[in-house]
């Protein structure tokens, strides 16, 4: 385009086209972006409601023993398969007194094992060890094992499904 035709009117007309094009593109991107990005981010805010899951009759647990109990997490999707299952360590301390530990090591979440002979929880990953009461005995964990709420309900021991405990700072 030659200098002669480049009037100020032309310029503003051209600027208008530039601005309107960019604006239309951006608005369209934001409009469709809200549902797209929102659907991907949703799990951050939408939390499943915790529910009580029965894990066995009271009499099936021996006083003093720590045993693994398996249950289904709070709201498994129909195609979750075996990944819907989760576990916890259940300690029957007295007649009606229970403590329930998360299986996840407080260091980086690996599954701790109860070693009955040693009366210790041991983590296979980085050497975290916990005492019977869940407190740290050795290794890198910054805190003891997490607890899950547990209750007695109609003769059944029930555990409140909870998210995987994430150690934060």
């Amino acid at each position: 385009m030659s200098e002669k035709t480049k009037t100020s009117e032309e310029c503003s007309r051209r600027q208008f086209f530039t601005h309107i094009s960019i604006a239309l593109g951006s608005i369209a991107a934001v409009m469709v972006g809200i549902p797209i990005v929102g659907s991907i981010l949703a799990p951050i805010v939408k939390k499943p409601r915790p529910i009580w899951r029965p894990v066995g009759e009271l009499k099936s647990f021996t006083v003093g023993d720590i045993v693994k109990v398996s249950f289904i997490d709070s709201s498994p999707l129909p195609w979750a398969g075996v990944t819907a299952e989760t576990a916890a360590w259940l300690h029957r301390k007295g007649q009606e007194e229970f403590t329930c530990f998360a299986v996840n090591c407080a260091h980086l979440g690996c599954p701790v094992r109860w070693v009955a002979g040693a009366k210790l929880f041991m983590c296979p990953c980085h050497g975290g060890v916990y005492y019977e009461d869940g407190s740290v005995a050795a290794g890198p964990p910054p805190r003891g094992l997490y607890n899950y709420p547990v209750r007695l309900h109609n003769g059944q021991v029930e555990i409140l499904t909870s998210p995987i405990p994430i150690t934060t700072i």
Binding site: K47, P48, D73, P76, A80, T83, A84, P163, I164
Partner: peptide
């Protein structure tokens, strides 16, 4: 965000 909710699953 990484695991898609509070627990490992579908």
């Amino acid at each position: 965000f990484l695991i898609g909710g509070g627990t490992i699953g579908a």
